[in-house]
Write a protein that binds this DNA or RNA. Structure first.
Length: 970
RNA sequence: GCUCGAGUGGUGGAAUUGGUAGACACGCUGGACUUAAAAUCCAGUGAGCAGUAAUGUUCGUGCGGGUUCAAGUCCCGCCUUGAGUACCA
């Protein structure tokens, strides 16, 4: 007993200190403090049924090291954790089993918490949030109402209360309003506004609100029974499940994120994020500078027969507006192409082209997004028979439709310049000679017989009237002036960023605080929030295709008693005046709603009346360090910035950007193991014996394989009943050797490694150090446990500096110079490493230090005390225990970080490498205070130098004192 | 196609502003302790050539050039690979 008492026993000391931290609330952050604040945040997890695997804690360990380090540095650190607990898997599970998603979620959270606690994170759990908790989503609903009650004023360049808009409307109409809004809003005067009915006014306001209800074309995923946002679609299929997605018109809530396009772009310059994430956001926002140009649709006389144009409704001129980044090529316009969905198509198509156009539209609408993408090389389109008028030459320009023009980008129409654009060129070549497709005009002094000339440089314009002889820059300037003069266009900036669809046809999400009167949405007064998710019998859509909330029996809003009441009380078709009970919104909010503001909630997580108090918001401001995966580049990280900017505009918070510094941890991949079954048999052949056998690769559970790739054959037979009678062809050594492949960790690949298993075997400190030691934080890397014994051995070695089997062996003697040097070298390196997020090299440095101190037989308090402190952010449990072995009360986590002292590293001499023609030949120890001349004298006198020179004289002698000696040119 | 990264021993990876390439660890080899094994400790370990050996010497950071006394690091041109994005007018 006595002997074991002083052995390093990770399980015992880790349990002990985890309990101590919890009982003493060691990591509770205060909202008022004399200390400077530092906010370290992890992307909170979705609590899935599979639990945590070793990949999840990677970022948490890094942020925990940083948080602990900052506490040692004297900061008041906020380091919270919570759960993004609304989401699809819990709902799918509910559909299959009938189990309420809240119960599944609760079970999963409990498991996550257990796993997280085992790793010894310094989270302030008193601030835990769960997005599915009504006390949380009450505030999500409140933010939604604020967005509804806001519009974006381009003059002040920020969001304002809708009241300022209504005020202006009633005083001067909307002519002078400069807002981000729907397009094509009719101009009205103050008098007109004041005579509009309330409903009419509401319809107009919806076109300005920052969240609005509109019939839009959405991404509909039939398999999931819901719409998806653009960032939830990857390669034309749903991100979750990989189901096909089609375009569909639906009335949905949208978020007017496009209002913030420019600020979201500019803000990137002010934040410390990786270039790749910034670049992804820039691409997603997709700013392009060019011009919008109007083409009048010509009242055309059919070439086939003379007819009165008024018969076709062409008596009024329509304008087709296009966006182009190359207004300088305007004289190269051969034709125009509209997206098949363009609203003018049906209006302008001539009778003789009608059948062909309609057939084409029909055919393209049937194709899914994915088919359209896969079919890029196939050129298709139809001539509408109509013509537009060129703004300068006044010549007719044929109007075509084609699916290479996307309805969702720009105006859904392009001016086609075949000589300067590859797609226009291909289209023109494909339909060359057909009715409506003229010869290509070449406005460049270049050969375009093979391909378009797409460069913006190296040409002079020709065949371009007043632009002849000009280059890109000069022509663009001139044409913009001319376009404005004749009123046919102007400079324009276009963004790819679309407004984000905010409705989901799901159960397990935030309900909207919205009810409908005569089909118009009304917000519930915030004082009645939360509107709690109703109970339903089935989590599937209703039989008549309503979202799952359509199944709720109690889901109507009583405007007299201000509460949710039975849906049966809604009286259909009765005049508005007598009704007081109205249907509630049946959609729920998307997954990103709750995660778009959660960092604010941590600042004051128990506040019932507000999302967080003003005091808390002013103290914590925003997140100093945010760590998480790069997969959220264009989703969460963009939406969060949007809501943050909005909340700032409306005066609720103080910071323009939510996350000052962002680090993306790389994914930890699994190393899958494969066994090879000979086809049609139950015989498994070892990797080296496959030869000519036709085999099928089957995933084997990685826990059945040791570090030498040998399979536990008996374990494998017992693993699954169908393998119980398996036969094996072994290697000559008698072993069964498996194959390996690096893949994403997943249950179905049997390559998941669980952090608690590692913690049980080696301890959490070993797990923490090993995850850091694997390689640079940002880099993706496969998990393998091969090196873990090295880290475990290091901790045992560290322990032995403080204690042997019989007890503590620390002395109060004065350490040697070498001991101080080892320590301070390490303080210096580790401090730099933490600040550079280079945690892998710190672990190496700790190993070097402990190796040196062991060699020096160092058991000196003056060294071991600071050593325990600098190692504590990485391996907090052993550090606490060592700190108490040294006789201290309380937690090492509160102790100031040791200061690096240069004096311990000052050297009086240096072992110089001596190179000849750049090749290092020998080393020589020389005092550092020698001048270059003195060094040269010593070197030239050295017999090894003479041996190298073989009697020759070097032309050049380079001596960099303190660094290197090089003799060259002989 | 475009954008952003990355290529270093048997393996994971070090190398701060150009200055001893391969730190640290795994693995492997040999040794100590042990009846034996595990654990622990010690030594060696980029490749080739010469030598019994100490040692000497050549080659070596994806490929081909260049700048420099000196290049993994800087410049030019490629190759491979990962990630994101894509008919964006």
């Amino acid at each position: 007993m006595k002997a074991n008492a002083m052995k390093y026993n990770p399980n015992e000391i880790e349990a002990k200190w985890q309990k101590y931290w919890a009982e003493n609330q060691s990591f509770k952050a205060e909202n008022t403090s004399e200390k400077p604040k530092y906010y370290v945040l992890d992307m909170f997890p979705y609590p899935s049924g599979a639990g945590l695997h070793v990949g999840h804690p990677l970022g948490y360990i890094a942020s925990d090291i940083y948080a602990r380090y900052k506490r040692h540095q004297g900061f008041n650190v906020l380091h919270p954790q919570g759960y993004d607990s609304f989401g699809l898997p819990a709902e799918q599970y509910a559909i299959q089993t009938g189990q309420h998603p809240a119960i599944t979620t609760e079970t999963n959270i409990r498991r996550y918490r257990e796993q997280l606690d085992k790793i010894g994170f310094s989270f302030d759990w008193s601030r835990e949030v769960r997005t599915s908790n009504p006390e949380y989503y009450k505030h999500t609903q409140w933010i939604f109402i604020q967005l509804f009650n806001s519009w974006y004023n381009k003059n002040t360049d920020k969001a304002e209360s809708i009241c300022t808009l209504i005020d202006t409307f009633s005083k001067e109409g909307n002519a002078n309003i400069n807002a981000v809004s729907d397009e094509n809003i009719d101009i009205f005067s103050a008098d007109q506004w004041n005579t509009f009915s309330a409903d009419e006014q509401e319809h107009i306001l919806l076109k300005y609100r920052l969240t609005y209800l509109a019939e839009t074309e959405v991404n509909w995923c039939p398999a999931l029974g819901t719409v998806l946002a653009n960032d939830e679609i990857v390669n034309g299929v749903s991100e979750r499940g990989g189901h096909p997605v089609i375009r569909k018109k639906m009335t949905q809530w949208s978020m007017r994120i496009s209002a913030y396009a420019e600020r979201l772009l500019q803000g990137l310059e002010t934040i410390d994020w990786t270039e790749s994430i910034k670049e992804a956001q820039r691409n997603w926002i997709g700013k392009s500078v060019g011009a919008s140009v109007k083409f009048k649709v010509k009242s055309q006389k059919s070439k086939v027969e003379e007819q009165d144009v008024t018969d076709f409704g062409h008596s009024t001129f329509d304008n087709i507006e296009v966006f182009t980044t190359r207004p300088d090529t305007i004289f190269g316009v051969n034709f125009m192409t509209l997206a098949p969905e363009h609203e003018l198509v049906s209006k302008i198509t001539t009778p003789e082209q009608k059948a062909a156009v309609e057939a084409y539209i029909e055919a393209t609408s049937k194709r899914s997004e994915r088919e359209r993408m896969a079919d890029v090389k196939n050129i298709s389109g139809v001539f509408t028979g109509a013509y537009a008028e060129h703004p300068f030459t006044k010549k007719p320009v044929a109007i075509w439709i084609g699916d290479y023009v996307l309805a969702g980008y720009g105006t859904g129409a392009v001016m086609a310049v075949p000589c300067g654009d590859e797609r226009d060129y291909a289209f023109a070549k494909h339909f060359a000679g057909q009715n409506g497709m003229p010869e290509i005009i070449n406005i460049f002094d270049k050969d375009i017989s093979e391909a378009a000339y797409t460069e913006k440089t190296g040409f002079e314009l020709q065949n371009s009237d007043f632009l002849n002889g000009l280059d890109y820059k000069a022509a663009t300037e001139k044409v913009l002036t001319e376009l404005e003069t004749i009123g046919a266009g102007k400079a324009k900036v276009n963004y790819r960023l679309r407004d984000a669809v905010f409705s989901r046809q799901r159960y397990w999400g935030e309900p909207f605080p919205v009810y409908y009167v005569n089909g118009l949405p009304k917000m519930i007064d915030p004082k009645h929030l939360p509107i709690v998710l109703p109970e339903v019998e089935k989590y599937l859509p209703t039989e008549d295709g309503q979202p799952p909330l359509g199944n709720a029996k109690v889901w109507a809003w009583d405007t007299v008693n201000n509460k949710v009441v039975s849906s049966d009380l809604v009286i259909p078709n009765e005049s508005e005046g007598s009704q007081t009970i109205f249907p509630l919104e049946l959609n729920t909010m998307p997954g990103w709603a709750g995660s778009s503001w959660y960092w604010l909630r941590y600042m004051d997580a128990d506040n019932e009346s507000e999302m967080a108090s003003q005091e808390a918001i002013q103290y914590w401001e925003n997140v100093d360090l945010y760590i998480g995966g790069s997969e959220h580049a264009t989703g969460h990280l963009l939406y969060s910035r949007f809501w943050n900017k909005f909340l700032k505009d409306r005066g609720y918070i103080t910071a323009e950007e939510p996350f000052k510094k962002l680090i993306n941890q790389g994914m930890i991949l699994g190393t899958s193991a494969f066994v090879y079954r000979i086809e049609g048999t139950n015989t498994f052949v070892s990797k080296g014996k496959i030869g000519d056998h036709k085999v099928q690769s089957i995933h084997a559970d990685v826990s059945l394989v040791n570090t030498s790739s040998e399979l536990d054959v008996d374990g494998f037979k017992a693993w699954r009943p169908d393998f119980a009678n398996a036969e094996f062809i072994l290697e000559d050594s008698g072993k069964y050797i498996v194959g390996h492949e690096v893949e994403k960790m997943s249950k179905s690949k049997f390559n998941v490694v669980n952090p608690d298993d590692i913690a049980n075997e080696y301890g959490a400190d070993t797990l923490r150090l090993y995850e850091m030691f694997l390689g640079p934080l940002e880099q993706a890397k496969p998990w393998n446990t091969a090196g873990i014994t090295g880290v475990f051995g290091f901790l045992k070695k560290l322990w032995r500096l403080y204690a042997d089997d019989n007890g503590v062996i620390v002395t109060d003697e004065e350490p040697t110079k070498e001991m101080y040097k080892s320590l301070h070298k390490t303080i210096k390196k580790v401090t730099e490493d933490i600040e550079n997020f280079s945690f892998n090299t710190s672990v190496s440095q700790f190993m070097i230090c402990v190796n040196e101190l062991t060699q020096q037989k160092c058991h000196h308090r003056s060294i071991l005390e600071p050593l325990a402190v600098i190692i504590s952010p990485y391996a907090p449990h052993i550090a606490e225990e060592l700190w108490s072995l040294l006789g201290h009360e309380g937690s090492v986590s509160k102790v100031p970080f040791p200061k690096f002292e240069e004096k311990h590293l000052v050297e009086s001499s240096k072992e110089y490498p001596v190179s000849f023609n750049g090749k290092m030949r020998f080393k020589i120890e020389l005092p550092l205070d020698l001048t270059a001349e003195q060094i040269e004298e010593i070197i030239m006198a050295d017999e090894r130098t003479q041996a190298q020179l073989q009697g020759k004289t070097p032309k050049k002698v380079i001596i960099v004192p303190g660094k290197i000696i090089n003799l060259a040119g002989f």
